[in-house]
């Protein structure tokens, strides 16, 4: 059976740490970093990368459009 694997890339310096992407993820992938970016925001990152399916939910609700989503199908 083909398996889908995804990954996200957050533009760290443009993330505003709003956390809107966190509940939007059905697979609980996203966490907020302990570190802050240049603007002082805790940025979003993949805390649980293995669970990402590349569904894009996080990216389409991100008000600042700072998430890019990648997806591969594995056999």
């Amino acid at each position: 059976m083909a398996k889908i694997k995804g990954a996200i890339v957050v533009d760290i310096e443009k993330c505003k740490g709003c956390e809107v992407c966190v509940p939007a993820c059905p697979s609980d992938v996203i966490g907020m970093s302990k570190e802050v970016n240049g603007k002082g925001y805790h940025y979003a990152y993949m805390a649980n990368p293995d669970a990402c399916t590349g569904c894009s939910n996080c990216a389409i609700v991100c008000p600042d459009g700072v998430i890019s989503v990648y997806k591969v199908k594995m056999d």
């Binding site: 700072v66 890019s68 997806k71």
Partner: peptide, 13 residues
């Protein structure tokens, strides 16, 4: 290996 240009499915317009 996932984060490669050919696998991009969503990015800001």
């Amino acid at each position: 290996d996932i984060i490669k240009p050919e696998n991009l499915v969503y990015t800001k317009t």
